Simulated scan of single mutants.
Amino acid sequence: MTATQENGWELSVSTYIAAPPERVWDIMTNRMEEWFCPKPWRVEIIEQQWHSGGRSAMVMKGPEGEEHPQEGLFLEVVPGVRFVSTDSVVRAADGSLMPSGHFMLGIWEIAPEGDGTRYTARARHWDEATAKQHDDMGFQQGWGAATQQLKELAEG
């Protein structure tokens, strides 16, 4: 999808997975460390509070020791359908919500399709420059590889 102001400067990937939605959802949420980053990168889950307002914290780890902490908040969690998170808001130690350096709003969702599942992942950005930066970083390749890893786990 082409990122435009009308679609929230959105980049997306989508694929059909030959597995029931319940299986795909279980892997999406309970086995993130196995699929969420394109290999040889990996993700270490620090905490995932699967509810609206819950913490979403992880560290992306590269093959040469790179580490990229990702701290954010779940904006929406609809079990078996979608989860939405952002890195523009974090929960402070006292429980209050605080603004954070922002990059994107992520939307991961599934829907029944025939005998399987349609998986779609979207990244919406604050402006054109941020969407372009994400695209230039290899959005399609990276998110596409993660999508393929999810597909292989679910179909395996």
Rank of each mutant, 00 (worst) to 15 (best):
W50Y: 15
T15K: 02
P63I: 08
T15M: 03
A57L: 08
I45C: 12
I107W: 01
W126F: 10
R118D: 02
D94T: 13
G53F: 08
W35E: 07
A129Y: 04
K39R: 15
R122Y: 06
I45Y: 14
L153S: 03
P79A: 11
E128T: 05
A111N: 12
P38H: 13
W143P: 02
E155G: 10
L75R: 08
A57M: 05
G138T: 02
T130F: 03
E22W: 02
S96L: 11
A146I: 06
H134F: 12
M98R: 15
L75T: 05
N30L: 09
S14P: 00
F103N: 05
E67S: 11
V13L: 01
S56T: 04
M32S: 13
M98S: 14
S88I: 12
T120P: 02
K39L: 14
E44N: 13
I46W: 11
E64N: 15
A123M: 07
P112E: 11
A131Y: 01
G62N: 13
T29Y: 10
P21S: 08
P38C: 09
H134W: 05
M58R: 07
V84C: 10
P79W: 10
E47F: 04
V24F: 02
V24W: 03
A129H: 09
L73V: 14
G54Q: 13
M98H: 13
D94P: 09
A121L: 10
H68P: 01
E109D: 09
K151H: 06
I46Q: 15
V81H: 12
A93Q: 15
G72E: 01
M98D: 08
Q140S: 13
V78S: 11
A19S: 13
W41I: 03
S52W: 14
E47W: 08
V59R: 06
I17Y: 01
K132Q: 12
P63K: 11
D127M: 07
F103D: 04
I110R: 02
F139A: 02
T29F: 05
E44S: 13
Q49H: 15
F36S: 03
M60A: 13
E109T: 04
M28W: 09
A154E: 05
Q141W: 06
G138A: 05
V78D: 12
G116H: 03
G101Y: 04
D136M: 11
P112F: 10
Q140G: 07
E33K: 05
G144E: 03
W50G: 07
T120K: 14
D127L: 07
